[in-house]
Amino acid sequence: MREAMDAWTFVIASYAVGVGATLAMIAWSLISMKRAEARRDKARGQR
C-alpha cells in the first residue's frame, strides 16, 4: 500500500475538463455565430 498521492489521476482529469470546456466553448461560439448570421440575413431581407 502506498501512502503518496498519485498525481496522474488529477493531471488526466484536468486535461479532460480543459478539453471538454474548450470543445463546449467552440460549439457555443459556432451556434451563436449561426444565430447572428441568421438575424443579419433576416434584417437584410435575404431570407
Rank of each mutant, 00 (worst) to 15 (best):
R47L: 05
A27F: 11
F10S: 10
A16Q: 04
R44E: 12
I12W: 01
W8I: 09
A4Q: 09
M1L: 10
M33F: 15
G20R: 10
S14I: 07
E37F: 15
V11T: 06
T22R: 00
A38L: 03
I26A: 01
A43D: 06
A4C: 11
S14R: 11
V11I: 08
R2T: 15
M1T: 12
R39I: 09
Y15V: 14
A24N: 08
A21T: 11
M5I: 11
G20D: 04
K42L: 08
M25V: 14
L30M: 15
A16F: 03
Q46H: 14
A13V: 07
D6M: 15
L30V: 15
L30E: 03
V11A: 08
R47M: 06
E37Y: 02
V19M: 10
A38F: 06
E3G: 06
T22D: 01
A13I: 12
A27V: 12
R2F: 13
A43Y: 00
G45P: 05
D41K: 01
M5E: 04
L23I: 09
D6P: 07
G45T: 00
V17A: 09
L23C: 11
E3M: 09
S14Q: 04
T22N: 14
G20W: 01
S29F: 13
R2Y: 06
Q46I: 02
T9E: 02
G18I: 02
K42Q: 05
S14Y: 12
A27S: 07
G45R: 00
R40I: 03
M1N: 09
R47I: 02
A21P: 02
S32Q: 05
S29R: 15
R35Q: 12
K42Y: 03
R47Y: 01
R44L: 11
M33C: 12
W28S: 13
V19S: 07
T22Q: 06
R2H: 09
A27T: 04
Q46P: 04
M1C: 05
A36V: 02
A38W: 05
M33H: 06
L30T: 12
A16W: 11
A21H: 02
A4G: 03
A24G: 01
S32W: 02
A24T: 15
R44N: 07
